[in-house]
Design a protein around this nucleic acid. Sequence first.
DNA 1: ACCTGAACACCGTTCAAGT
DNA 2: ACCTGAACACCGTTCAAGT
Lengths: 195, 195
Amino acid sequence: MRADAKKNRDHLLAVAGTAITEQGVDVSLRDIARRADVGLATLLRHFPTREALLEALLRTSFDELTARAGEFETSDSPEDALVSWLRDCVAWTTEYRGVTVLMAAAIEDTESALHASCVTLRAAGARLLARAQAAGTARTDIDGTDLFALIAALAWLSDQPPLAPRADHLFAVVASAILTNPASTNTEGTAPPSP
Amino acid sequence: MRADAKKNRDHLLAVAGTAITEQGVDVSLRDIARRADVGLATLLRHFPTREALLEALLRTSFDELTARAGEFETSDSPEDALVSWLRDCVAWTTEYRGVTVLMAAAIEDTESALHASCVTLRAAGARLLARAQAAGTARTDIDGTDLFALIAALAWLSDQPPLAPRADHLFAVVASAILTNPASTNTEGTAPPSP
DNA sequence: ACCTGAACACCGTTCAAGT
DNA sequence: ACCTGAACACCGTTCAAGT
């Protein structure tokens, strides 16, 4: 890449970062280009889609979340590890207003620039879930995709201003549903609702 | 209202209904006007905002859901009544792709044309919840607003094509969290997580 | 190689001019 | 009273023309 091109690219990423923090991921691309003193077409050649721009911007964060899942995998309490990591995921998405919708769309769209990162994230969660399930502290009728969907739903809640005040509480409610109730080691009769 | 105005209004509502069914609530208003062979400005005077158009279109459905909650209030099992009604709510929103976001925004926006309907819906859910709580079969650390948020989150899930296949299952998971586990009537020691 | 302005086909909003 | 076309300020996409 030519030096001036790299300079443009880096500058665009910096400007996009602040613009998205201020206005959310739906911010006008034209506006980002304007703020970066660059033609709109220049932005679009560096980042052909909104998803491509976000991917470049969020790659570091994605990697951090995946790495943290790896650390949690060695912790003593599989269920605490799972819940703590889920909480980290939800907290992270709230920094990028609107990103949940794009991630939900990207998880099955192999053409999306965000696809690989989302799949990696789901796999990291699936490992933590499997460990808790093996330890008998997470319900066994859900998988990594269910977990991804629950994170997305809770993150979406945090993204809606009128519902956001309840997001933390509802996270706890959903977390309690993921963890099998230790009080009911039910071997018979009182099986929890399953699909 | 003049006869020709009423005719325009009714025709616009009919066209909007099919357009929204096909393309979701974000369908272009210009497109609806075009399909109705009417000027865009005409549509906007009958329905000054997208929410106003939706309110006119969904009022019947809102009323039906509220009425059904009333019927459920007299049923034998408060917990079955609550869960069945929640299921009806989620199922209904899936008929109007994208409506969940507008409802979440409307619940605290007194200016929104959808505000009153959303508040009524929340109150209907709150009554069913209170009845189940009084019967000791629903956790007592949530209220009508939490319930509204959970419905919205589950409806949003159903609205995301990649996550939709898990929506029914995850509804059951969340429902199990709302209903206190009958196996753990925990009087001491194993209190469920609370905020 | 890389950048850019301009044209394009959209969108919702507003309003003066028609019937 | 009610309707409408046109102007407006946006949006993302595309591409021929510049350096």
